[in-house]
Amino acid sequence: MNQEVGRGSENSSDSAPYSFGGAWQPSAIEIERRIARKARSRKNALVATASSIVVLGTLLSIIITSPGWKTLSETFFKWAYGFEVLPKIILGFGANLFLTVIAATSVAFFGLILALVRTSRSPAITPFRLLATVYVDVFRGIPMLLIILLVGFGIPALRLQGVTNNVFILGIMAVIITYSAYVAEVIRSGILTVHPSQRAAARSLGLSNMQTLRYVVLPQALRRVTPPLLNDLVSLIKDTGLVSILGVTDAIRAAQIESSRSFNYTPYVMAAGIFLLVTIPLTRYTDRTLRKSIERQNAQGLA
């Protein structure tokens, strides 16, 4: 739109009708606008900084000068002690990460299969579709902690030959069982939002049902559900901590061991910090993907 102004203005020496090349100079009025805009944004930044300093400073001084602050900081923020136990907690966090990687890959696989089965209309699939629906309903409706307890303590209690007693493996299994149900629903909702005309267009081109799914429906569906899936990934990282209840030495369990030894809660705070170190960037990234995907969908709506 600026070019429009530039073309009409008198200092434009280049008279070629559609050349928007170097000849354009901002007009006096535009220069004025730009100066005014700059001044305004400088003022906004100033106001934001000043108000932040006042508000945050007040909060901080209230906390620090409060009578309980000394005991509080002794119990939760004993940094020297915290850094002493940090290596053990980080080691434990390795277990959380490992759990996350294994679980996320398996959940992606099983969740996708469940979603495909539930959205399939083929008659041969009917019994599986029913089973998948029941599965999803059941496992989305039970607190994950219960599933971890049931799998982690229940399966070894069966004393079956060849079935593992390894709490780590049982813990992962419980996480996968639960999250597959969550993720299946997310992917299914993505598949359902792909416009039916897209399927019709693909089938009209002669693509088979499977090809339509693979090249047309799934790519669009997965792109659309990437933000909620990333949200689930953040939850998954945190929820791997729940397997500590089975005795898996993850970050939480490591912190618990230290804390019960010293009657100080700084190890928990350290563990919380480590989780945040991973989850905050991931959350920010999720936010950005979500914003982008909304922009993209809006752009499509306009076309």
Binding site: A201, L205, G206
Partner: peptide, 21 residues
Amino acid sequence: DPDEIRRKLGMVFQSFNLFPH
């Protein structure tokens, strides 16, 4: 086989024809 037949036909709809991805 419907797929077989559709290979010989071209169809364009009112909208949402192209694959946006």
